[in-house]
Measured scan of single mutants.
Amino acid sequence: MDVFMKGLSKAKEGVVAAAEKTKQGVAEAAGKTKEGVLYVGSKTKEGVVHGVATVAEKTKEQVTNVGGAVVTGVTAVAQKTVEGAGSIAAATGFVKKDQLGKNEEGAPQEGILEDMPVDPDNEAYEMPSEEGYQDYEPEA
């Protein structure tokens, strides 16, 4: 019985440690998101679009440190934060509304985080759909 109880105690310690790591990862992701939003706020009209992409990228980098179902929630929060940063930029006159959601080359930025393969159960990952990809044929 002692062996059984000791095993359960060790398992509990492992769960607590994993929860603490997840909590730490979420806190880091939130900190990076805040950094990115402050970065966007300090940019001029020309830099705002690039700044919004930076927020998304920093958040995406930190999301990889967070495991399990938390990833889905962090990704949703990050996307809403990026959308909010863009709205703030438009409201303050840093950028025109028609410039939001495009990178410096004018290509749409939507789907940055949505296409990231995420499995809350950590069982399997699927690649994003290939609808947006084109076949590449090298020139002879």
Rank of each mutant, 00 (worst) to 15 (best):
A78I: 13
E83K: 13
E137H: 03
K12W: 15
F4M: 05
E13W: 04
M127F: 08
E137I: 07
K43W: 11
L100E: 15
A140R: 12
T22P: 04
D98S: 10
E123W: 01
S87K: 04
L38T: 06
V49A: 12
Q99S: 15
A19M: 14
E130D: 07
K102T: 14
V63T: 04
P108M: 06
P117G: 12
E61P: 03
P128A: 09
E20F: 11
V82L: 15
E13H: 13
E105F: 09
L100C: 04
A140F: 12
D119T: 15
T22H: 03
Q79P: 02
E57T: 08
V48C: 08
K97T: 15
T59Y: 01
E35A: 08
P117Y: 06
N103M: 09
V16A: 10
D135K: 14
A107L: 10
G73H: 10
A76K: 13
K102W: 08
T72G: 10
S87R: 08
S42E: 14
E35R: 05
A11M: 15
A18K: 03
E83P: 06
A85N: 03
K97L: 02
Y125T: 12
P128N: 10
E130K: 07
G111V: 07
V26G: 01
A140H: 06
G41K: 13
Y136T: 05
Q109I: 14
G25I: 15
V63S: 02
L8Y: 06
E104L: 11
N103D: 05
G86T: 08
T22I: 00
S129C: 03
K102R: 01
E110D: 05
A17L: 05
E131A: 09
E28T: 06
A11S: 01
V82N: 05
A27R: 14
A53H: 03
G93P: 07
H50S: 06
K32Y: 15
D121N: 13
K96N: 12
K12E: 01
D135H: 09
P138E: 12
G106E: 12
Q134F: 03
T92Y: 06
V37D: 00
E28F: 10
G93L: 04
A76R: 07
G84N: 06
T81G: 08
K6E: 03
E57G: 09
A124P: 14
V82H: 06
K12A: 08
K6P: 00
V82Y: 07
G101P: 00
E35W: 13
E123K: 08
F94I: 08
V95T: 05
T81V: 14
S129I: 03
A11T: 08
G47I: 07
P117N: 13
V26D: 00
K96F: 12
G36E: 04
G36K: 05
E13C: 10
P117E: 13
G51Q: 02
V40M: 09
L100Y: 09
A107Y: 10
K80L: 09
N65L: 15
G84C: 01
P120F: 08
A30E: 00
V63D: 02
E28N: 07
V3F: 13
E137K: 05
P120S: 11
G47K: 08
A91I: 12
A69H: 08
N65H: 11
D121K: 09
G7N: 13
D115H: 07
V52S: 03
K58S: 06
A78N: 02
G101Y: 15
I112H: 12
M5H: 06
K58Y: 14
D2H: 14
M127A: 12
K45D: 00
E105M: 01
K23Y: 09
V66C: 07
V37P: 01
A30D: 00
M127N: 15
E61I: 11
K10Q: 06
V66W: 13
K32G: 01
E139G: 15
T44I: 06
V74Q: 02
A76M: 04
A30K: 05
P117H: 03
G73R: 12
T54N: 11
Q79A: 05
D119I: 03
S42P: 01
G86N: 12
G7K: 01
H50P: 09
V55D: 01
S129G: 06
L8C: 02
Q99E: 08
A76L: 11
E131I: 12
P120N: 07
V74E: 01
K23W: 12
I88A: 13
G36Q: 04
G73T: 15
G36W: 15
M5D: 01
V71H: 03
V16M: 09
E137T: 06
A107I: 09
V15K: 00
A17R: 09
A19I: 15
Q109W: 12
S9V: 02
A78P: 00
D121G: 13
H50W: 10
I112R: 09
A19N: 02
K102L: 05
G47C: 14
S9Y: 03
G111Q: 00
T75C: 12
T33A: 10
G31C: 09
A89Q: 06
E28A: 07
A27F: 15
G106F: 06
D135A: 02
K45S: 04
M5S: 04
G25A: 15
G132K: 10
E57C: 08
K6G: 02
D98P: 08
N65M: 05
I112E: 10
G106C: 14
Q134V: 05
I88P: 02
D135E: 09
V3N: 09
A56D: 01
L113N: 10
K60H: 07
P117W: 04
P117T: 11
G106P: 08
E130P: 12
Q79C: 11
I88N: 01
I88T: 05
G67P: 04
P120I: 14
N122I: 08
K102H: 04
S42W: 15
E61T: 06
V77K: 03
V66G: 02
V52N: 00
